[in-house]
Amino acid sequence: MTRRAWMTLAVLVLLAIVPPAFYLSGNAFYLSLATRLVILAIAAVSLNLILGYGGMVSFGHAAFVGLGAYAVGIPAHHALYGGWDALATNSGWLQIPLAVGITALFALLTGLVCLRTKGVYFIMITMAFAQMIYYLIVSIEEYGGDDGLVIDSRTELWLFDLDKPLQLYALCFLSLLVALGLVRMIVNSRFGMVLQGAKGNPERMASLGFNTYAYRLTAYVISGAMCGYAGALLGNFTTFISPEMMDWHRSGELMFMVILGGAATTIGPVLGAVIFIVLEEILSSYTIYWQLPFGLLLIVTVLFVRGGLAGLLGGRK
């Protein structure tokens, strides 16, 4: 096994053991922190597929998180207050496919447009679409608008009782493992080779006969749907959702995690989420302007540490 592989294993084993151990010894706070960390890690892993491996710098990924969360919140709202009978349920059989489906659709529709552009235009247009969703949700008063929406009862799932913190964490952690496995499988597949080729040299890929647009769009949809799933988990974790979840700051944070942790590495986004949560905790206790040092750290990493933290700790591949 390479050093990188050992590091990946170590991080995952620690995440599997340490937070539940804290919880069982009476420290519920750390499990809660770790749950948020793991959910953000899933979102970052999904972003890594297109940003790291596909070279698509999406500045709108928080929209998928938000949509996924509202796909839990809106049915739960109707289940309690009535209306929209077809949608009104707490069942995971509806909510989870809804979260994944709606985000996949949103990714498809916006991706059709975004992927016609490159570079800074792509960054701007993904951000613009995310802000559109943000303002759309703000404008719907029934779902709380600006003030957000309380999720009164969590998604009802087979096997997992999400009202139990340990079971919620178990689901999130297993989901992270699946997300990591999926991304790894995709990246190593023939599809993944085309995706990475299109990042490295799109013109060459076209002259070889690959319709790079179709491959990138597919990756964009997969990434969006995966991120939507993370959003559904986040809604269940916070039980309070608001348009603020899809603000461009949030998209920026996901980008930070991927780049800081190590884009185009398996474990990078997870490391990025760890640093993000730790810094947020430490820095925010000193200053409300904690995003400033955080931003500086990001710049330093991007400039001086090729391969992010994963590159620093695990060596080059």
Partner: peptide
């Protein structure tokens, strides 16, 4: 005009892969 991030063989294998219909194949490691 090569894909510098990939290995020499990966570059050529991709060119070969391009001839075998579409590459929406997700399961087997390339």
């Amino acid at each position: 005009s090569l894909i510098m991030e990939m290995s020499v063989l990966d570059n050529v294998a991709l060119a070969l892969q391009a001839r075998e219909g579409h590459s929406f194949r997700f399961l087997r490691p390339a």
